[in-house]
Design a protein around this nucleic acid. Structure first.
Lengths: 176, 176
DNA sequence: GTCTATACGTTGATAGAC
DNA sequence: GTCTATCAACGTATAGAC
């Protein structure tokens, strides 16, 4: 009997996402995920070819949204830096839990293509904010702006309380 | 014969530090460290009671310097925010390699007291920059300033090229 | 005091039976 | 689709040679 479960694949992802968010990717074993679902590790491996694929599926929606945002602005004639910072910040805030998980296990997720992609983002956001081939000084300002916002996203507390102030600070960091 | 080695303990730390910096804490096995030194895993365990102790010894000097800086400013009558940001930035830059390693394996290092201590830093730097019990908006600005600087420290390239600009950006983020 | 040999439990992953 | 059994590699631990 196929067990009283709607969609095992989906349930695995849900349980894994919760555990990953709470205790990190590396510190969560597949045995733990399987046990919570009442199945064995081997059954997990039927649905997902590896632990990496499991996390990939969880992070992918976030990656896709950022990718869409970047592609959109890169296609635009000119970019409003403030608006771009705001939009990027909002995407990160929306995927706050996933974002924190990624930051906590950078070296573990580095083996996935995920990390290569995220380092790519860095270059592209800098180019959008201060233009391609900008001076190291201008790039440093863009780094403070983006890095500062990201750091804000990993702090606790309701978003409304700090969103506008953080954005203001990032714009100020970027300079004229 | 005690082997043709000056100080095994020191050599272990040196090799481990290099491997940790290059491929992260979790992705470096003790077997790998031992093999590179021509000894066995068990010999490692004679010198260091655990893998955690090994990394602790590597990170400790960095932790101590930040702790000293914080204690110094907390004892001062008033704090020059710009000067504090500069001093903190310089410590992080000096321990750049260690700092990057820590950031890459946050969840792995969380079990050490290290992470509790670093979260503590966050509160204390905010208090130094915008005063204790500041509004969420002010704290957000301090977060962008500190977080932005930290992000700059993990980028490649010679320090002199971006140090001043990054500092300028952080001061601007902090606001009046 | 310094190290080797050996083993324990857990991890991610695979093979094959039902 | 799920199981049992098994794998190598990992961090950890202890006993004992020198």
């Amino acid at each position: 009997m196929p067990r009283t479960r709607v969609d095992t694949r989906t349930e695995i992802r849900a349980v894994a996402a919760e555990l990953f968010a709470r205790q990190g990717f590396e510190k969560t074993s597949l045995r733990e995920v399987a046990e919570r679902l009442g199945i064995t590790k081997a059954a997990l491996y039927y649905h997902f070819p590896s632990k990496a694929d499991l996390v990939r599926g969880i992070v992918q929606p976030f990656v896709d949204e950022v990718e869409d945002l970047l592609a959109d602005r890169e296609a635009a004639a000119d970019v409003d830096a403030r608006q771009f910072l705001a939009d990027y910040f909002d995407v990160v805030l929306r995927y706050r839990q996933v974002f924190e998980m990624v930051l906590r296990d950078v070296s573990a997720l580095a083996q996935l293509d995920l990390m290569r992609q995220m380092l790519d983002w860095r270059e592209r956001t800098y180019a959008l904010l201060v233009g391609p081939g900008a001076s190291p000084a201008r790039i440093a300002r863009a780094t403070v702006a983006i890095g500062g916002l990201q750091d804000c996203a990993t702090t606790d507390g309701p978003v409304e309380e700090f969103r506008d102030a953080a954005l203001e600070a990032a714009v100020a960091a970027l300079g004229s």
